[in-house]
């Protein structure tokens, strides 16, 4: 009898530590944040002492041009980063899709940028972008070209370049793996039918890779909203608000302006945005799978 009870309890015993920790340190804080976003809350107060102000924080933010600016910067950053990385990463994978000697060595070199701390990445790029000492401007000087004010006039672009440097290999490696696990027979058949390299890519390789590409894109998109340290070290959100992404603004609102309620409301907006994106992406994949299944069913009926 006791053995049966142990067996029935064992899943709960295995789950318990994870559930307890996630409840204490993730779920409860998220609830706490939602609750706090309806309050006028300063860091020195406990949440109980803070005054309840209803939706005031949300409305303030909604009408705050700085918040709009930072939201635009975030969306721009995420859009450019993800689309450029996808194009370069997938393009390189298509270009280099063959047996490479020393492939594992190449991959090791390419994942290096991802493993290094974002703070250090920011540090390296801040040095390279330095107006007088930096590598880029020195190279421009020695070529006789005018210097570029990387972190001043072109701050957002510079930040985007740094992120592309760090994360394009991720997409490259994933899409190369997807490409090399494609069914050889489909490609073989296309080649025999006389498809050109472009036709093979557009009609066979890309559609077959699509599921992996969508997941990769989604992962990168979610990560693009998490970027903070690189930008913090490179520009601290400046000049002006030109690189102040939402994550950075949240942390500044909380630590510099000491308005935890507003910061919490901003976090909720960011969370909502991410939720919409995730749900949208998943719905899209579902819809696409359903469509593929329908087409396959039709094709089978025909034959």
């Amino acid at each position: 009898m006791s053995i049966a009870r142990v067996n029935r309890l064992s899943p709960y015993m295995f789950m318990a530590p994870a559930v307890v920790i996630m409840a204490i340190a993730l779920i409860y804080p998220l609830g706490y944040m939602i609750w706090g976003s309806f309050r006028d809350w300063a860091p020195s107060q406990t949440i109980g002492e803070a005054e309840f102000v209803g939706l005031k924080n949300y409305i303030t933010l909604w009408n705050d041009p700085n918040f709009h600016e930072s939201l635009t910067v975030t969306l721009k950053f995420a859009f450019f980063v993800v689309s450029i990385e996808m194009v370069i990463g997938v393009g390189l994978a298509l270009l280099l899709d063959r047996d490479i000697r020393g492939m594992s060595m190449l991959r090791t070199m390419l994942i290096l940028p991802m493993m290094i701390a974002p703070v250090v990445v920011g540090l390296m790029w801040r040095y390279m972008y330095h107006p007088t000492v930096g590598t880029f401007n020195r190279t421009l000087d020695s070529l006789g070209l005018p210097r570029v004010d990387w972190l001043g006039d072109h701050a957002l672009m510079s930040v985007i370049i740094a992120d592309i440097w760090q994360w394009t290999p991720f997409i490259f490696i994933l899409s190369l793996a997807a490409l090399q696990s494609l069914p050889r027979s489909a490609l073989e058949a296309a080649r025999i039918d006389g498809a050109t390299a472009w036709q093979q890519i557009i009609y066979i390789k890309l559609p077959l890779m699509m599921p992996v590409l969508i997941v990769t894109c989604l992962l990168r998109l979610i990560d693009a909203f998490k970027v903070l340290e690189v930008i913090l070290v490179l520009t601290e959100g400046g000049p002006g608000l030109s690189t102040e992404i939402l994550a950075l603004r949240i942390s500044r609102t909380a630590t510099e302006f000491r308005e935890l309620g507003v910061a919490a409301a901003m976090s909720n907006y960011l969370l909502l945005l991410l939720m919409l994106l995730t749900v949208g992406m998943f719905a899209f994949t579902r819809w696409q799978e359903a469509r593929a299944a329908r087409i396959r069913a039709l094709a089978e009926e025909d034959s």
Partner: peptide, 29 residues
């Protein structure tokens, strides 16, 4: 077991939470 689906869905959902979102509540708590 009971609650298995809830656990597995909520694990998936909290994966997307950025650290910046946790900053305020974690600091307070």
């Amino acid at each position: 077991f009971m609650g298995r689906d809830t656990v597995s869905i909520s694990t998936l959902m909290v994966r997307m939470v950025p650290p910046a979102v946790l900053l305020v509540p974690v600091f307070g708590l």
